[in-house]
Design a protein around this nucleic acid. Structure first.
Lengths: 237, 237
DNA sequence: CGAACAATTGAACCGATTCAAGATGCGTGG
DNA sequence: CCACGCATCTTGAATCGGTTCAATTGTTCG
């Protein structure tokens, strides 16, 4: 747990780059391999709130790694309604779902001011053929996402969705070295609701209930989990 | 559209094997590569109805390709409820979601008498490092599944879920060379309901409505789509 | 042919949405 | 620094879609 990307200062870009590789693609690599991998990571860019990284429909060339902040990927369906497909935390990759169609199908938008760097997918996959462990890591990443969406299929009630959502964020922050019990709910209630397929009012009501029952503590966008087990029990029911 | 796996006769196993490779992993390969790929496909097995291929929890070693019939993957959640994660048609692969956890998380069960063959994943990924097009195909397959589950996130009403489900089956059968308008709904209503997260009664009612409105025709397990556009309009709304 | 299971149909119920208002927070300019 | 205005969030009451429960019909198989 040495280097963790904490702040959004541009001065940290270079030094956090090394750890970013380990966070996104934590493969067992020797120094030379690691150098190669880092060499294909292109320069970082700071995205202002609501700024998009690319647009749905653009040709697929790069995948992106989040360095700080948060991105949400928004898809527009046939009738023009937008659907927030996912939220991407520091250390996570997005854009891999565009491999198949060959073009992006959703638009990633910075939830708050955020930093991401791009990786040329062609170079990445070429490198993967030379580094079996990298190939395996790519497959693992995608398998993980498949797995996550399978789990989400089961969630039924609104309570379970909310609990599952909070636990997912908690686990993912924890995995990247942040606190599992306290973090920022950077996205709006409306966006949470959209992502979970429910009304914003329901999100509001259920969060209030969780606060009243001493499961959560929420101040503005800061959320503290006071009773993790309660949430876990809710999901597994 | 030369060789298509049509029947379940064991005599066809050998000859359908070649086309199976093309169907599951339709990469641009020369003959030698194709031979190599075929060489790692292990022998097929006939699974009786309700027979499982492996069990959730088993260590992950193989992925499986469906040759005929249909498999459904069943996951058991924390409270013991089962959730049908997906249905697998001829020419489709299953088991890839187990790469990440390293063990299977769901149990594939033959919906009707079905045939599948196993592929050693270690050999497959080793081969992929030597054949960039195979690696790309594997990534494409997984990207496709991610993409499909993203699309499913948006579906809201029960009507849309049913329409989307039927259209998905139709498109997948069509892609494998079968009819897009007529196929068998081998799985039970209860299992469709479970998979879509709704009550079996609702499936019954909505299918009846679609039959009354001349959108579908259903005889036992045979389904005929009489008004594809109606279904498409339902999904995109 | 009859038993067991699957699918259908009807009526009451419940969770979540919708609609409509009110509260809270936040940036802007006076 | 406070007042204003806009946007987000919260809260309440009515409505609706889908579930649940219960009974009937249909289908498969020993």
């Amino acid at each position: 747990m040495a280097l963790i990307p904490t702040a959004s200062s541009p001065k940290q870009l270079r030094c956090s780059q090394c750890s970013l590789v380990k966070l996104c693609l934590p493969v067992g690599l020797n120094d030379e391999d690691m150098m190669q991998l880092e060499s294909i990571i292109e320069t970082s860019k700071i995205y202002k709130q609501n700024e998009s990284v690319y647009r749905a429909g653009d040709p697929f060339h790069h995948v992106y790694a989040v360095k700080s902040g948060m991105f949400q990927t928004v898809a527009i369906d046939a009738n023009g309604d937008s659907q927030i497909v996912g939220f991407h935390l520091p250390g996570e990759l997005f854009g891999l779902d565009a491999i198949y169609p060959g073009h992006y199908t959703s638009t990633p938008v910075a939830v708050s001011s955020s930093i991401a760097c791009s990786i040329d997918f062609k170079e990445l996959s070429t490198l993967a053929t030379q580094m079996p462990s990298l190939q395996h890591q790519l497959l693992t990443l995608m398998s993980k996402e498949m797995h996550a969406s399978h789990v989400n299929m089961g969630d039924h009630s609104a309570d379970q969705k909310i609990a599952g959502f909070i636990l997912s964020l908690s686990a993912r922050y924890k995995q990247r070295g942040y606190s599992a019990n306290q973090f920022q709910l950077l996205m709006s209630r409306k966006d949470i609701a959209n992502h979970l397929g429910m009304a914003p009012e329901t999100v509001s009501r259920l969060l209030k209930r969780l606060i009243n029952e001493d499961v959560l503590d929420i101040n503005q966008s800061d959320i503290t989990i006071k009773n993790m087990k309660y949430l876990q029990d809710t999901v597994g029911h």
